[in-house]
């Protein structure tokens, strides 16, 4: 009996999860993330939240937060989540560029992909790996969100019920925000020879794409819609939003992910292995 498309997607993504959480290399990445997040939680996040709580509506510190682009913090009923939202919108896309860089490249260079493709199709492999990496990132986002919730509850346990909806919307937004970055890495990984190359190309392409499109849009405002092609273009605007408003811009990363995955699939289908 031939395994179905979804059965193979499940098997391939499960194997990626195993790579992420049960191999030495995967565990090292997770532990490193854990340590970095611990310090973010302990210092910038807790410190800023403490300042905001002490501020207690006096707006004494908001000119400073406005100055550094964190003005929307005042709209978040739970300050910790406001800070988490701002920090996570930077941290997780960056994490995605490194964590999702090796979706197929090293396996292709080593020849391991050939063993898999004797039993599966290129589409199943490409999307299975993408889903696997997305699940790993989703779990990390959930872990970070839960750690922030614990920080909130240690300050005031009565905030639990009001905190949950906020936490849900942040988590959902962050998952959507990392989608186009993961899709971009899937496409790059299908092209280059190593994870390091994929990360470097991602930084270069993103920088030039952002620079060129922004430049063109400045002189020809009619072409400003091309800015929608830049992964993360909505992040700056997102930081100014709070609560369920943040989902207003979700169509941008979803559209970008769709386009980038189509490009990656096209590359993968034509790649000599």
């Amino acid at each position: 009996m031939h395994p179905s498309f979804f059965n193979q997607l499940l098997l391939i993504s499960q194997f990626e999860l195993k790579r992420g959480f049960a191999t030495r290399k995967g565990l090292l990445s997770i532990v490193t993330f854990g340590v970095v997040w611990y310090f973010i939680l302990l210092y910038p996040l807790r410190f800023t939240a403490d300042v905001l709580v002490e501020d207690n509506g006096s707006n004494q510190h908001f000119s400073f937060f406005d100055f550094i682009g964190f003005g929307s913090l005042q709209h978040w009923p739970i300050p910790e989540f406001g800070v988490f939202w701002h920090i996570a919108l930077i941290i997780f896309p960056i994490l995605s560029v490194t964590l999702a860089a090796d979706q197929t490249c090293s396996d292709r260079e080593r020849g391991t992909l050939r063993f898999i493709l004797l039993r599966s199709s290129r589409n199943r492999l490409f999307f299975g790996r993408f889903i696997g990496v997305m699940i790993i990132q989703t779990l990390l986002i959930c872990a970070a969100a839960l750690s922030t919730l614990i920080l909130v509850l240690t300050r005031d346990a009565s905030l639990f019920t009001s905190a949950l909806p906020n936490l849900l919307v942040i988590t959902l937004n962050l998952i959507v925000a990392v989608l186009p970055f993961t899709a971009m890495m899937a496409a790059l990984s299908a092209t280059v020879k190593s994870a390091r190359q994929a990360t470097l190309w991602a930084i270069l392409i993103w920088t030039f794409l952002a620079g060129i499109i922004s430049g063109v849009a400045y002189y020809l405002p009619a072409l400003s819609f091309f800015r929608l092609l830049i992964p993360g273009v909505q992040l700056a605007e997102l930081t100014q939003l709070s609560g369920w408003q943040t989902l207003q811009l979700a169509y941008i990363p979803l559209l970008q992910s769709f386009i980038l995955l189509a490009v990656g699939r096209w590359i993968m289908a034509r790649q000599a292995l």
């Binding site: 195993k18 790579r19 191999t23 290399k25 396996d107 080593r110 020849g111 391991t112 050939r114 063993f115």
Partner: peptide
Amino acid sequence: LPQDARLDPSF
């Protein structure tokens, strides 16, 4: 048996 193909060293 593809020429020079190697298994994944992580598993």
